[in-house]
Amino acid sequence: MTEYKLVVVGAGGVGKSALTIQLIQNHFVDEYDPTIEDSYRKQVVIDGETCLLDILDTAGQEEYSAMRDQYMRTGEGFLCVFAINNTKSFEDIHHYREQIKRVKDSEDVPMVLVGNKCDLPSRTVDTKQAQDLARSYGIPFIETSAKTRQGVDDAFYTLVREIRKHKEKMSKDGKKKKKKSKTKCVIM
């Protein structure tokens, strides 16, 4: 069974824990209790493949930012979460993405942009803004509501699919490099 290491990042209060708990335990946590770091595991079937999701729910508070490099190193894919009623959390996505790329030393890291709290009427981040940002990053965008469960499975499952595509691409690139290195030079 394939294991996928997913990391949920975003500013404090955007609903990272609520999304994760909704996926794992099928219930909505409405009281806000700032996370330092929590880890969850769940076995699911995605596109006919049974897999184990190892999900790291991270601290959004700035005082825990020193811990970010460590979990970013171990993560295979990242859910970059903002709240649709919090423009600052949307603007912060850029910083999370840049930090992930720096730590992973790669421009090509599996990510999904997630606009959470889409059940709320007080939207300050337009869907088109988020779609445009995701398009500019070359990553999928999904709106979710941890409260109603809308888009929750889709967000995590899409990230797994992005990781699969990335692994497939990397193995193809690896095979191309191996083929090239088999060419021999004969000096007579």
Rank of each mutant, 00 (worst) to 15 (best):
R102E: 12
E49N: 13
D173N: 12
K167M: 08
I55H: 02
G60M: 01
Q25V: 15
F82L: 06
D47P: 06
G77M: 10
K172G: 04
R149T: 15
K172P: 12
H95I: 03
N116W: 01
G48D: 07
A134D: 04
Y32F: 03
V114R: 00
E31K: 02
I93N: 04
Q70G: 09
E98P: 01
E168A: 09
G75K: 04
R97A: 10
D38V: 00
L133P: 06
I84H: 13
V29R: 02
G12W: 11
E107H: 04
S106P: 04
A59L: 00
K101I: 08
Q22I: 11
I139V: 07
K180C: 15
F78M: 13
V45C: 12
Y157P: 09
S145Q: 02
G174Q: 03
G75R: 03
D153N: 08
T2E: 13
N86S: 09
R135M: 13
I21S: 02
I163T: 04
L52D: 15
V29N: 04
G48S: 10
Y157M: 05
A83M: 08
K16A: 01
D57C: 00
E162L: 08
K184C: 11
S181I: 02
R68D: 15
R73F: 14
L120S: 13
V186R: 09
L133Y: 10
S65F: 08
Y96G: 02
D173G: 13
V14W: 14
D69M: 03
K169C: 08
D154S: 06
P34L: 01
G138L: 02
I139K: 02
M188P: 15
K177E: 08
Q129C: 14
D132H: 06
A83W: 01
K178Y: 10
A83Y: 02
F78A: 03
N26H: 13
D57R: 00
I139N: 04
D154F: 05
F82D: 03
D92A: 10
D126R: 04
A130Y: 14
P110G: 02
I84F: 12
Q99A: 14
K182S: 06
I21V: 10
V14N: 12
T158C: 10
Q70L: 05
K184T: 06
K180R: 07
V81H: 14
Q131C: 06
P110F: 02
G60K: 01
T124R: 07
M188S: 12
V160C: 14
N116P: 00
K178C: 05
